[in-house]
């Protein structure tokens, strides 16, 4: 497989099973940097599972074994995400993820945003505050919540919660963002807001988006893959 100049994620002969069931078979693809790559397909084919392969989150859920290689281009070099030099926590800090349903932690907005930084060992209060404001601004939430950063995050509306989760993922300045149907639990207005956001965010990272809304994909995706019959087909 040839690699292009602007690739960010690559798989080589990737196969993945869940129990007895083979979900992905011998997949070799490359996703571009600074672009939105959409993965679509019928439900139950393993789209979400494919996403969790890229940040090794499947290891927390169960499943496997995984065969083949998954590579990430970091500092211009392709690196195996299963290599011993790449601890799983480091990988997940560089590859952010947003889930189907908003999942704010049961704590305040500010604490939600500070959480990933504290995990990464960043305790400096001013830096946390500055980066929180920056992340909230990027998801266009700052004006709405500036005066209630200490209130419980679960009191926000669904669209606000999902933007908060996006902001939380951005706190670590990830190079890849994995999005698992991020708008499926939102109303059309909130959904349009998130889509606009993604178009802005792709300037600074590679976005992999699982979605089954064809209109959403045609609006924002640069690359489109169809997952079916255990393999990925390039559509666009």
């Amino acid at each position: 497989m040839t690699t292009t100049m602007n690739g960010k994620i690559r798989t080589e002969s990737l196969s993945f099973s869940y129990g007895e069931r083979l979900l992905l078979e011998d997949i070799s693809v490359e996703f571009a940097d600074q672009a939105i790559t959409a993965i679509t397909g019928p439900s139950g084919t393993g789209k979400s599972t494919l996403l969790t392969v890229f940040n090794r989150l499947w290891e927390e859920i169960g499943g496997g074994p995984l065969h083949g290689q998954v590579l990430l281009r970091l500092e211009g070099r392709w690196q195996d995400i299963h290599a011993p030099e790449m601890p799983v926590s480091t990988l997940r800090r560089r590859v952010g993820m947003v889930f189907q349903t908003p999942n704010p932690l049961p704590m305040s907005l500010a604490a939600n945003l500070a959480f990933p930084l504290k995990l990464a060992g960043i305790d400096d209060k001013e830096e946390i505050a500055a980066r929180s404001r920056e992340a909230l601004r990027r998801v266009h939430l700052l004006a709405e919540v500036e005066d209630r950063l200490v209130s419980d995050a679960r009191l926000l509306s669904g669209g606000q919660q999902q933007r908060l989760c996006l902001a939380r993922a951005l706190m670590l300045r990830p190079e890849v963002l994995l999005l698992d149907e991020p708008t499926s639990s939102l109303d059309p207005k909130a959904c349009a807001g998130i889509e606009e956001l993604l178009l802005e965010l792709k300037e600074s990272c590679a976005i992999v988006l699982v979605s089954h809304y064809q209109d959403q994909i045609s609006r924002i995706a640069d690359q489109v893959y169809l997952l079916g019959e255990r393999t990925l087909l390039r559509q666009r």
Binding site: L57, S89, M97, F99, L119, L172
Partner: peptide, 26 residues
């Protein structure tokens, strides 16, 4: 619930941190 369970690992927390900071408080 699984959504809450996966939140911290997706942000790079190890298992023990997830238990201490998210699961036990919940």
């Amino acid at each position: 619930p699984r959504t809450l369970r996966l939140t911290a690992p997706a942000l790079g927390a190890d298992k023990l941190t997830t238990i201490r900071a998210v699961l036990l408080p919940a």
